[in-house]
C-alpha cells in the first residue's frame, strides 16, 4: 500500500513538472503567430533603400551609421526579405501571388541618414522619422516627422500627417485627411475629397489644392512667400495673425467670400454670383491667391 502511495506521489510530481515545462516552453497564442526578426548589413551612406511592406506597421528611422538594421516580428507564414548589396537594398515582406491578403507584421527599419528610401505599403501604416524619399500607401496612414532632404508622399485613401522640416515636400491623398505642420519650405499638397489642414507650418512657397475637401491654412505668412490655394467645391479658410503682411487675391466663380479680416467687401461676379476680393494686409510682403469654383472662401483673424 505504502509503495503504491509513493508511486502515485511520484507520478503526480512528474505530471506537475511536465505540465509546468509545457506551459513554460509554449509561448502564448499571439506570440506563436509571429516570428521575431533581426537582420542587419553594411550599407553605403547614400544607398537607396526600397521597401515593400503590405500589411501591419512599419517604422523607418534614419541614423548616423553606415548600415541598415531591421527588427520586428513577421507574421507566421509570411516571407521577409532583405536583399541587395552595399550600394542599395530591397527589404520587406513578399506579396502573395494569388492575391490573398498578407497577414500583418511589424518592423522597425533603421537606415543611413542620407539614404533615399522608397516605401510602399498596401494597408500598413508608415511612421518615418528623419527619412527622405518616396512614401506610398494604398490605404494605410502615413506619418512623417523630423528633418528630410525631400519628401514625396502619396496615398489613395489613407490619412497623411507631416510634421517635417524639409526644403521640398509633395503630398497627395484622395479621401484621407492631409495634415501639415513643421517647416516644409516648398510645399505642394493636394487631396481629392479629404480635408487639408496646414497648422502653423513654416511654408515659404505653398500650393494647396482639393476638389471637394476643405482647406484650412492657419499661421503666419513669411515675407516673399507665395501661396496658391485652389478648390472646386470645398471651403478655403485662411486664418492669419493680426500682423499678417500679404497681398491677398480671392476669387470664386459661384461661391461666397467671407472677409472677417478687413472691412472691404468682395465685388460680386457675373449675374451676382461669386465674386472677387483684392486686399492688402500690412505692407503686403507675401502673395496669396485663392480660387474656388463654388466653395466658400473665408479670410479670418487668428485669435490672440
Amino acid at each position: 500500500m505504502r509503495r503504491n502511495r509513493i508511486a502515485a506521489r511520484r507520478l503526480a510530481a512528474c505530471l506537475t513538472v511536465a505540465a509546468a515545462t509545457v506551459l513554460w516552453v509554449a509561448p502564448p497564442a499571439c506570440a506563436q503567430a509571429r516570428t521575431p526578426l533581426l537582420r542587419a548589413r553594411h550599407l553605403a551612406g547614400d544607398a537607396p533603400v526600397k521597401v515593400f511592406f503590405p500589411s501591419g506597421a512599419i517604422t523607418i528611422q534614419a541614423w548616423d551609421r553606415d548600415s541598415i538594421d531591421v527588427r520586428g516580428t513577421i507574421a507566421r507564414g509570411e516571407r521577409f526579405y532583405l536583399a541587395g548589396g552595399d550600394h542599395g537594398v530591397k527589404v520587406g515582406v513578399m506579396d502573395h501571388v494569388d492575391g490573398t491578403p498578407v497577414r500583418p507584421s511589424t518592423i522597425v527599419v533603421r537606415v543611413p541618414r542620407r539614404s533615399e528610401v522608397s516605401v510602399k505599403t498596401v494597408a500598413a501604416s508608415i511612421d518615418a522619422r528623419d527619412a527622405s524619399g518616396w512614401f506610398y500607401s494604398v490605404s494605410g496612414p502615413i506619418r512623417l516627422t523630423g528633418a528630410a532632404s525631400s519628401l514625396e508622399v502619396e496615398s489613395m485613401a489613407g490619412d497623411v500627417s507631416l510634421d517635417v522640416a524639409a526644403p521640398w515636400v509633395r503630398a497627395r491623398t484622395g479621401g484621407g485627411r492631409l495634415a501639415i505642420a513643421g517647416a516644409p519650405q516648398d510645399l505642394d499638397a493636394a487631396t481629392v475629397r479629404g480635408a487639408l489642414d496646414v497648422d502653423h507650418a513654416a511654408v515659404v512657397h505653398g500650393r494647396f489644392a482639393s476638389v471637394e475637401g476643405d482647406i484650412r491654412f492657419a499661421g503666419a505668412l513669411p515675407g516673399g512667400g507665395l501661396f496658391e490655394f485652389s478648390n472646386h467645391a470645398g471651403r478655403v479658410a485662411l486664418v492669419l495673425p493680426n500682423t499678417a503682411s500679404a497681398l491677398v487675391d480671392l476669387s470664386t466663380i459661384t461661391g461666397v467670400i467671407d472677409n472677417a479680416f478687413t472691412q472691404i467687401r468682395p465685388v460680386a461676379g457675373q449675374g451676382g454670383r461669386g465674386g472677387t476680393l483684392h486686399v492688402q494686409l500690412g505692407p503686403g510682403a507675401a502673395r496669396v491667391t485663392v480660387r474656388t469654383f463654388k466653395g466658400t472662401i473665408t479670410l479670418a483673424k487668428e485669435s490672440p
Binding site: 492575391g99 490605404s139 485613401a157
Partner: peptide
Amino acid sequence: AMLPPATAAVADSDLRAIDAAIAELREA
C-alpha cells in the same frame, strides 16, 4: 481591377468627384 474592392471604390469616388468638377468647369 487588381485593387482591393474597397480601394477600387475609393478610386472610383475620387474619379467621379474630379469628373464632376471638370464637367462643371467646362460648362462654366
